[in-house]
């Protein structure tokens, strides 16, 4: 059911992705605030098929030189490319005091046993400002291989960015800043260098009182 409805290919599928802040020492859900969240653990045939976006519409929002989105897309495979529009939830009641933990967790699944490399590039005006590269090994569970990046600490740049964003008095000002803030995640098979998933993230601030929202698109080139 997930094919065409969520982020994934027959080789690797995103199960969950979240960025959060949490009061340390009390890791229960009540003290955790989710800035963004994708959960694809229960795909259904009733879910809508993904709409598509022409990848050329967003080239300049991501690195354009060597290893940039254009070069990655031309190399393919095209079915591994997705765009996520996040409406981030900045409406947290957790006090930003020392000891608060900022983290990112994600989980992938695959029918294959691989070692994967996950690169996350934070970009400002399309230029990379920080990159984190993580390597994950498979764990066999319930008939498939799971890759779990659990509570990876958020980098200082992102924490400061969130702080500054929250200080802006109006949502339109936050959205104006977010127009030039993007993240590109590339997951590759470490041993073969095959590209498994490429996810481009763009942002607005949520106006909902029900937490973070998102739309997922396939990236195409017609």
């Amino acid at each position: 059911a997930w094919q065409g409805r969520s982020i994934g290919t027959p080789k690797l599928r995103l199960v969950e992705f979240l960025a959060f802040m949490e009061q340390q020492g009390e890791p229960d859900a009540y003290n955790k605030h989710l800035y963004v969240h994708i959960s694809q653990s229960n795909p259904s045939y009733s879910d809508a098929l993904l709409e598509s976006v022409d990848v050329r519409q967003i080239y300049d929002k991501f690195p354009e030189k060597k290893g940039g989105l254009k070069e990655l897309y031309e190399k393919g495979p095209p079915n591994a490319f997705f765009l996520v529009k996040f409406w981030a939830d900045l409406n947290t009641s957790i006090q930003d005091e020392p000891g608060v933990f900022y983290g990112v967790s994600s989980q992938y699944e695959s029918p294959e046993n691989m070692t994967i490399t996950c690169s996350s590039k934070v970009c400002s005006f399309g230029k990379q400002v920080v990159e984190k590269v993580e390597t994950e090994y498979a764990r066999f569970e319930n008939g498939r291989f799971l890759y779990r990046i659990h509570r990876s600490p958020m980098c200082e740049y992102l924490i400061n960015f969130i702080h500054k964003l929250k200080q802006l008095p109006e949502k339109y000002m936050m959205n104006s800043v977010l127009e030039n803030f993007t993240i590109l995640q590339v997951v590759t098979n470490r041993d073969t260098q095959e590209l498994l998933l490429c996810i481009a993230y763009v942002f607005e601030v949520s106006t909902s009182e029900h937490g973070a929202q998102h739309h997922i698109y396939r990236l195409v080139k017609d």
Binding site: Q57, I58, G126, S206, T207, S208, Q213, H215, Y217
Partner: peptide, 24 residues
Amino acid sequence: GRPDQVPMRKRHLPASFWEEPRPS
């Protein structure tokens, strides 16, 4: 933004790109 950048609103993007989903 940079002067050579086209605002996102002026690009060819699906209408849903500007509609925050309602929580399910």
